[in-house]
Amino acid sequence: MTKRHITYLACAAALCGSLGAAPASADHRTLVVHPGESIQKAVNAAAPGDTVVVMAGTYRESVKVTTPGLTLRGVGPGTVLKPAKKVKVGKMTAAAQKSCAEMGNGICVVGTKKQPVEDVTIAHMTVTGFSRIGVMAVGAANLNVHGVSAVKNGQWGLAEERSVHSTYRYNVARSNGDAGLFLANSVTAEKGATDTFGTVVEHNLLEKNRIGVTVRRLRDLTVSDNSVTGNCAGVFVVGDENKPKAGHLTVADNQVVKNNKYCKKTARLAFLQGSGIVLTGTENTLVTGNTVTGNSGKSPFSGGVVIVKSFVKVSSDKNQITRNKLSGNAPADLINQEAVKHGNAFQSNSCKKSKPAGLC
């Protein structure tokens, strides 16, 4: 276990109370949930600005949060949320009508298209074993997720769509079926990239997932100071044919190491193995100060930092790859599959091999 891994665990255990949490007003209540009691019942009883503290123990339920300003906080990794032993699914068929549990999710933070749910905090607990997503936010603003361990969930560990100005810090996403952390404009609709107004993903440990972090069709977002290791692919920044394109993002100061797990192909992607940081269908993205080592494979996306056309053959344009330290990546440390005319720039990187030659 590295010092960085220990930092994440220590931060969660110590509650890291200063990370983005506003001081409670004297008018705000703290509701405490003990083993055997219902988290959802306490959440339903909470008013905006209240805090629901979940004591150590295993709770077999899913939780839906729609109250603005609510803090849902465990006391560390020992607060564990798992699926109910049996979820009763009614006759409803539309996804929007189903409950968080029926959708296979652990915690759902849910706003509407017209009224996002604002200032919700999810912190200091383990969410594990759900068939779909550990923590999912739809239509959120100023969401704060920190000190959460999302482990062995069927699809994504932590995820969001149609959300702005979120913060993900000091979380652990491990052994999830797809991305450890997934951020998108919309999961279901094909549309242009949307502005997150400064979403931040930093100081997270993302390991043994299919992809460590996926950023899809978004703009104005920062992924920095994360440890990304043991996945099939480390960081994927994804665009498509819609406008505006994904881009105006920053991927900085991450440790992207030995993402060499093998994942079979899907309907949209070839098999994955040995991918460090991949930009596909993006523009004006800055990749800087990252340490990218030991990512090796024979996938079309394999290599240290890879720039490639999107699944629908949209070009990657005017991205800047600067001041990264790369070594031991195969087939090369830096790979640019775009033509020179697309204006991707490689400057001041420390590396040994590139495709085409001359990028190091």
Rank of each mutant, 00 (worst) to 15 (best):
A21P: 02
T229Y: 05
Y8R: 14
S275K: 05
V278E: 01
S186Y: 09
T285K: 04
S227M: 12
S38C: 15
F301W: 02
E207K: 04
N105K: 08
V33L: 07
S224V: 09
G69I: 02
C11A: 14
T194W: 01
K355P: 02
A13N: 10
A173V: 13
A84K: 13
A26K: 15
T79W: 12
A14D: 13
K64N: 06
T214Q: 12
S354R: 00
T128Q: 14
A252E: 13
S18A: 11
S327I: 05
N349Y: 07
G192F: 06
T229N: 08
V110G: 04
Y170M: 14
N329G: 09
L359C: 08
R217K: 15
N254P: 01
K325A: 09
K98V: 05
E118P: 05
H28D: 13
Q320A: 13
E207D: 13
L15S: 10
A13E: 14
L279F: 02
L218E: 04
K91V: 14
A246C: 13
A270W: 03
G247A: 10
A24C: 07
V200I: 15
H248R: 09
N254C: 02
G289Q: 13
N254R: 03
L143A: 09
L9F: 12
V228P: 02
K243V: 12
C100F: 02
D220N: 15
T93M: 10
T282G: 04
S315W: 00
G234R: 00
K64P: 03
G74Q: 06
K64A: 10
E61Y: 09
Q40S: 07
G90E: 06
A12E: 13
A173G: 11
K114T: 14
K353L: 00
H124V: 10
D240A: 14
L19K: 04
L158Q: 10
E190V: 09
C351F: 02
T291W: 00
H342L: 07
G154H: 06
S296L: 01
K265D: 12
M1W: 07
H34A: 12
T66F: 04
A189P: 02
Q155L: 15
K91M: 10
V63H: 05
V138N: 08
Q155I: 08
P35H: 07
S315Q: 03
T293I: 06
V228N: 00
C360Q: 10
S299T: 01
K261D: 01
A95W: 08
G289Y: 06
N204D: 15
R4D: 11
K152I: 02
G36S: 09
L158W: 08
S299G: 03
S186C: 11
P300F: 05
A137L: 14
R169A: 15
G106T: 13
